Simulated scan of single mutants.
Amino acid sequence: MRGKTAEDLRLLELLDPVAEAAGYEIVRLRLMGGEHVRRLQIMAERAVDGDMNVEDCARLSRAISEVLDAADPIAGEYTLEVSSPGVDRPLTRLKDFETFEGYEARVELDRLAEGRKRFKGLLAGIDGDQVAIDLEGEEETALIPFAWISDAKLVLTDELLKRGAEIRAARVQSDQPTSE
């Protein structure tokens, strides 16, 4: 899910080590557009705390640009865009479903399960390689194989916005000089 196409996956193989060496994790990579105008969109976060600010985006963009310029893996011109996954972020790795346990998500499968492909509910963590989700109107927690998930995203809720505000406030607080 971090990459959709074979080209995306090749780019991830090239760029994952670059991001990791710089202290980041690539959450999602998409090479979009036609033959002439393309955009390489990379959503990333700091490995230590999951945060990603403007300085982090610039730092990772410079590191990735160096490797892309040297390896030249993309034919033609393209624009590189490095960003934070945002508050209502995509869930692309198994660990994301554990990290955001208790928050509402939309999940889309690559096949039918119980007659449907789309599900919405509260994330209930993981169980091995399965995602646990408390679906609306269901008594029992559903287990969905991670391999079946084609797309997943957090739903923008008051609780999620509050979490984002708390993280930003903590970042601002830690950036403040201490008076001693």
Rank of each mutant, 00 (worst) to 15 (best):
A75C: 00
Y78M: 08
D49W: 11
M32R: 12
V54S: 13
L40I: 09
P73I: 05
V37F: 12
L68C: 05
D88R: 03
I42L: 15
V37C: 06
I74V: 15
A70S: 13
V54K: 11
E55V: 07
H36K: 15
R38M: 14
R62W: 03
A58G: 09
E81K: 06
P85E: 08
V54C: 07
P90C: 07
A63C: 02
L60W: 01
D72Q: 11
E77D: 14
G34C: 07
R38I: 07
I74P: 02
L40E: 08
P90E: 14
M52P: 06
G34W: 00
M43H: 13
A75R: 14
G33C: 08
A44I: 07
A58M: 11
G34N: 12
Y78Q: 07
S61W: 00
G86L: 10
A75V: 11
D69V: 03
E55I: 04
G76A: 07
V67G: 01
L60T: 03
V54R: 12
D72C: 02
R62V: 10
S65F: 05
A63G: 01
D56H: 09
I42T: 09
R39A: 15
D49G: 11
G50V: 10
E81C: 03
A47S: 15
E77Q: 10
I42K: 10
H36M: 12
A75F: 08
Y78P: 00
L60F: 02
S61H: 02
S61M: 03
G86V: 08
R62M: 06
G50I: 10
S61Q: 02
L60D: 06
L68D: 02
M52N: 09
R38C: 09
S65I: 02
A58C: 04
I64S: 00
A44T: 08
V48P: 00
V67N: 01
R62Y: 05
S84E: 05
E35S: 13
Y78T: 04
T79S: 13
L80N: 05
I64G: 00
M52F: 15
E81I: 02
D51Y: 12
V67Y: 01
M43Y: 14
M43P: 01
Q41G: 01
N53P: 01
D56I: 07
G34D: 11
R62Q: 13
E55M: 08
I74H: 03
D49R: 07
Q41E: 15
D51C: 09
Y78S: 07
G76H: 05
V54W: 09
P85R: 05
A70N: 04
P85Q: 08
S61V: 03
E35F: 10
S65D: 10
D69H: 04
Q41A: 14
S61Y: 01
I64C: 06
H36D: 13
V82E: 02
V67W: 00
G86F: 11
